[in-house]
């Protein structure tokens, strides 16, 4: 990290060793899904389950990105169409990811679910300010791959009506 600064190396090494350790435990599991040909990642801490073939009941008088509600074993769970939320045109193929964000259950409709990966917090880079989106908290490269993924801010999904 600071090989040129020989004189101060000791303390710096000690510090970076410490922060490395913290970063190792700072890895988090993310679920990667695809929506309108963009890869997104969402912390698995929020993910409850992934459903295919759900019947969504539409609710009148709500914005189009609120797809409706579903009956999940007797519980009424709201569903957000992620593609429409980001202003894209939804594709035919879709699946629903059920999330639990601070005790709020909500499902999001996406094109497809890709894989589960571990991402170190240090690998997540900030989004350039021109490209900022309130749902996206950072971006990174798929570990061992070349594609770029957008890291979603789960808590922001809880308050999309604001």
């Amino acid at each position: 990290m600071s090989e040129e600064n020989g004189l101060f190396a000791r303390t710096d090494e000690a510090r970076s060793a410490l922060s490395d350790k913290v970063q190792e435990t700072d890895e988090e599991k993310y679920l990667i899904f695809r929506s309108s040909n963009i890869l997104y990642a969402l912390s698995t801490a929020y993910v409850i389950e992934i459903l295919n073939n759900v019947t969504i009941t539409r609710i009148p008088m709500v914005p189009d990105y609120i797809a409706g509600v579903i009956n999940l074993r007797g519980a009424i769970v709201p569903i957000v169409d992620f593609r429409l939320l980001l202003g894209r045109i939804p594709e035919e193929e879709s699946c629903v990811i059920i999330l639990n964000i601070r005790e709020t259950s909500v499902g999001i409709v996406v094109d497809s679910v890709d894989q589960m990966v571990d991402i170190a917090r240090s690998a997540i880079l900030p989004v350039p300010s021109q490209n900022e989106h309130r749902l996206v908290s950072g971006m990174c490269t798929v570990p061992g791959g070349v594609s770029t993924i957008m890291i979603l801010d789960g808590e922001a999904l809880e308050h999309i009506h604001e």
Binding site: I59, M61, V62, P63, I66, V69, I76, V77, P78, T104, S105, V106, H161
Partner: peptide, 9 residues
């Protein structure tokens, strides 16, 4: 009741 998530609209 409908979830608050949709009632908010």
């Amino acid at each position: 009741p409908l979830p608050d998530y949709v009632n908010n609209y």
